[in-house]
Simulated scan of single mutants.
Amino acid sequence: MKAMARSGLRLAAGLGLGAVAVVAEVVFVLLSALALLFVQTWPGPRRVVQRQVGHLARRLAEAHRRRLGTFLGIQCSPAYPDAQALSYIATRWPLGVLGAVVLFSVILGAGYGSLVIIGWFIPDVRYPVTLLVTGCAGLFLLFLAVQGVLGVATLERKLARRFLGPSRQEELQRRIEELAVSRAGVVEAVHDERRRIERDLHDGVQQRLVALGMLLGRAVRGQDPDRSAELLRQAHEESRHALTELREVAWRVYPTALDEAGLRAALETVVERSTIEVALTYEIAAEPRRPVATVAYFVVSEAVTNALKHSEASLIRVDVREEDSRFVLCIEDNGKGGADSSGSGLIGLAQRLAALDGRLAVNSPRGGPTIITAELPCV
């Protein structure tokens, strides 16, 4: 209910700002038409006036683009010519007037509709039937006005798409390019992951197993029972270390807790394995889809590992929440900062996120703190 109320207020604020902008738009359109009319027969001045009019139209269109994105959730591309900006401003002002009328109708309907409630608390109403009919009419007007608000918002979206937004073909082309880039990034991330696993096995587990074989060979060939017993004890220690490192590699490849107990349990395991304090805040009611949960786990795991290795931090905060149908991860540490967003680790995370239409933001000034924010679609 609160989310619906916030969405309604945001929508009303967006339409209200659009209605206020009508005055500037009408003045701009009239003055621009007069200026272009006066210089119509002079090519040089006409080009100068057209350039200035286009520049001002773009500034007004950019203000509307920000309004649409902030309040109505309509995202438009900034790559549009000045002529389309001028056409948008010239055709939008009637829609702004309609928005003002609809919002006024909402206020009027809410005012008259409240008479139905107020009538219950006023004793000795002189004309109860009139009060009831007026209140019901106000509620009906409120219902129609709310539908009108949604209709105006839809018209705003269509008009912005027509003049400011990319065409269907351009949007598909952009999507194809994004998919090609993300696919190449995923392939590169997979190769990097394989190289890292090979390096971990070669430098860690393999060296342990070589040392284990040498110790066992010396113990078999040895003539001194005490020396052989000592070598066997060392071989036993090496086998334990090799098993531990093998488990570490297997855990970094894919944690079994993610399938067995879900994302929260997997993240809690990351917290437990950390050598410094990690504060986890998990505010997700339902378990996310498996691809989203997998990417979210690796983002947190890699970010925590990087902080342990490079940040000299004493505290890491991990915040997992859901905002506007987006799965948001925020990892913050109080270390020295200076993290390189173009480094191989963070680039790999960005590529993982891009494969699911997610995005990664890194804010790490010198001196800290380092804040890594990742967003993924819930659906």
Rank of each mutant, 00 (worst) to 15 (best):
M1T: 14
M4C: 14
A5D: 14
R6F: 15
L9N: 10
L9A: 15
L9P: 10
L11R: 07
L15W: 01
G16A: 09
L17N: 03
L17P: 01
V20R: 04
V27F: 10
V29E: 08
L34E: 06
L37A: 14
V39P: 00
V39A: 00
Q40D: 14
Q40A: 14
T41S: 13
P45V: 01
R51K: 12
H55T: 12
R58N: 14
A63I: 10
R65E: 08
G69F: 10
L72C: 03
G73T: 04
S77Q: 11
P81I: 05
L86N: 05
I89N: 02
T91D: 12
W93R: 01
W93P: 02
P94A: 03
V97W: 06
V101S: 06
I107H: 02
S114L: 06
L115G: 07
I117F: 05
I118T: 11
I122P: 06
V125M: 09
C136M: 11
L139M: 02
F140A: 15
L141Q: 08
L142E: 02
L142A: 07
L144V: 15
G148I: 00
V149R: 02
L150Y: 10
G151E: 09
A153I: 07
A153F: 13
T154V: 10
L155C: 03
E156F: 02
R157C: 04
R161E: 15
L164G: 02
S167L: 02
Q169D: 06
E171I: 00
R175T: 06
V181F: 02
S182E: 00
V186A: 06
V190Y: 06
H191Q: 13
R199P: 07
D200G: 11
D200E: 15
L201D: 07
D203G: 12
G204N: 07
Q207T: 12
R208K: 09
L209I: 09
G213Q: 12
G217F: 05
R218N: 07
R218I: 13
Q223R: 14
Q223I: 04
S228W: 04
H236Q: 15
H236E: 13
E237H: 13
E237N: 11
S239C: 13
A242E: 06
L243G: 07
L243N: 10
E248H: 10
V249N: 05
V249S: 07
A250N: 11
A257T: 08
L258T: 00
D259G: 06
E260V: 07
G262M: 03
G262S: 04
L263H: 03
R264G: 03
A265Y: 00
E268S: 01
E268T: 01
E272A: 13
R273G: 09
S274A: 11
I276M: 10
I276H: 08
V278D: 03
A279G: 06
Y282D: 00
A286Q: 09
R289P: 12
P291K: 12
A296E: 07
S301G: 12
A303N: 10
L308C: 02
L308I: 00
L308A: 03
K309S: 08
R317F: 09
R317D: 10
R326S: 14
L329W: 03
E332W: 04
N334W: 09
S342T: 12
S342E: 14
G345K: 11
G348M: 07
Q351G: 02
A354R: 15
D357T: 08
R359W: 09
A361G: 10
I372P: 00
T373W: 08
V379Q: 12
